[in-house]
Amino acid sequence: MSVPLLSRLSREGRAPAVGSEPTLPSAEDLRAHLDKQVRIAGRGFWKQPLAVAGVIILGLWLVAGVFAPWIAPYDPLAQDAARFLPPGGDHLMGTDSLGRDVLSRIIHGVRITVPYAVIIVAVSTAIALVVGSIAAYAGGWVDEVLMRITDIFLALPSIVLAMIVAAAIGPGLENAVIAIIIVAWPPMTRIVRSLVLSIRSRDYVTASRLLGASSSRTLVVDFGPNLIGSVVVVAMIEISQRILLLAALSFLGLGAQEPTPEWGRMVSDGAAILDRWWVATFPGLAILTVVLAFNLIGDTLRDTVDPQVSKQVKE
């Protein structure tokens, strides 16, 4: 989506010609440009079978989560004397150590795993957009200070740092979310900074500044439409990673606590009971399918919306 908008508008006769009074593209021009790029990307996206498969898988899980109280055959917290029943009969995925229906707990777990992962990515992306854009646009000592702070958070692997933060503030689902946000924004900040640096050197940004645009207007009008595609792509891929990290913290006892039907916690409950394979296997498959769906959607968006973002993600 990174198109030299000012040059394109000039070729179409909607930007100032040489010798005329300089004006910046109107809000209508910017919206029309963004809408056109979205339509082009949408047509390419729906032509990809893997993307359609990802949308279907994710859609089924979201529908299950929304209608969980009506779809789930049992109360996810209800205990029963029928402990460790194998899959089949009245319990399609069996029961766990407390006699709770595994299928019901998995269906209700969608309402925890996916929304919390989206919240984590939304907050960390917002932080990354602010920090990365300011660092790249301001440059100099501002860039140096912000990037060294970012490097401090990147010094440790994300899972290790998340474990340290979660252990320090105490186990719990909300604390795990805070810990993951703390470790999620630095990689995104690096990506945003790289994207802003690449956009800053382009001709239409220079022309906009020469025409008298303020720094705030340049960031919003010139950088915004060209950043949004790449940021959305990275965010989609990040959701799958944050689902895994949230499940990992719950698996280690630092995230969701009993009796919350969180998938990572459910895998942890069944991991030590090898002869009761269904207790851990079915929640693990749920994590696998949701992560796969987000990855399929994110990878296709990367190819159709902004192929250049692949390089930024790898960096």
Rank of each mutant, 00 (worst) to 15 (best):
V131Q: 08
V52M: 05
I56G: 02
V177E: 05
M188N: 04
W263T: 02
I199H: 02
A72S: 13
S124Q: 12
V121G: 11
V183D: 15
V123G: 09
R190F: 01
R111D: 04
L245D: 10
D143K: 11
P76D: 10
L254M: 01
P115D: 04
L227Y: 08
T95C: 06
S158I: 07
I180G: 10
A41N: 04
A81V: 04
R39L: 06
F251N: 04
D35I: 03
I112H: 07
H108Q: 02
L24M: 12
V123S: 08
L219H: 07
P69D: 05
V110Q: 01
V232T: 13
F67L: 10
V114E: 04
P157W: 13
F251W: 09
F251L: 15
V192S: 13
S20W: 00
S10K: 15
K311T: 07
G13C: 05
R209S: 10
S26E: 06
P187Y: 13
L103D: 04
L161G: 15
L98F: 11
G212L: 12
H91R: 02
A78N: 01
V313F: 07
T260G: 08
A126S: 11
I178Q: 06
R190G: 14
A27M: 15
I297K: 08
I56Y: 02
P225R: 13
